[in-house]
Lab assay of single mutants.
Amino acid sequence: SISSRVKSKRIQLGLNQAELAQKVGTTQQSIEQLENGKTKRPRFLPELASALGVSVDWLLN
């Protein structure tokens, strides 16, 4: 799922939720909701993929 991929990649990069949120241009709460499965397809998906160094396709599939 996107939530597990985001969380595992974030941890692999040594980032906390607030640091990832800053790179993406969103809030820590938005990252938390995404990782908890409350958000399925965030509006900041391209920025998120870029910050994590992955493709949008990788996040979604």
Score class of each variant (00 low, 15 high):
S1Y: 11
S1L: 11
S1Q: 10
S3K: 06
S3F: 05
S3G: 15
K7D: 00
K7H: 07
K7F: 06
S8Y: 15
S8V: 09
S8D: 10
K9A: 10
K9S: 07
R10L: 02
R10T: 09
I11S: 08
I11D: 06
Q12W: 08
Q12H: 09
L13F: 05
L13V: 05
G14V: 03
G14T: 03
G14Y: 05
G14W: 03
G14M: 06
L15N: 02
L15F: 10
A18G: 09
A18Y: 14
E19C: 06
E19M: 08
L20S: 00
L20W: 01
A21V: 01
Q22H: 12
K23P: 03
K23S: 08
K23E: 07
V24Q: 01
G25Y: 04
T26R: 06
T26N: 03
T27V: 05
T27H: 07
Q29V: 11
I31P: 02
I31V: 06
E32H: 10
Q33D: 15
Q33E: 15
Q33K: 13
L34Y: 04
E35R: 01
G37P: 02
G37A: 07
G37F: 05
G37L: 04
K38W: 15
K38Q: 14
K38D: 13
T39W: 11
T39R: 09
T39L: 15
T39C: 15
R41I: 14
R41C: 15
P42C: 14
R43D: 13
R43L: 14
L45K: 00
P46T: 12
P46Y: 14
P46V: 14
E47D: 10
L48G: 00
L48C: 02
L48P: 00
A49P: 00
A49L: 04
A49S: 06
A49M: 03
A51P: 00
A51E: 05
A51M: 06
L52D: 00
G53H: 08
G53V: 15
V54G: 01
V54N: 00
V54C: 06
D57V: 09
D57M: 11
D57Q: 12
D57R: 12
D57W: 15
W58P: 00
W58E: 05
W58N: 03
L59K: 00
L59R: 00
L59F: 06
L60S: 07
N61I: 09
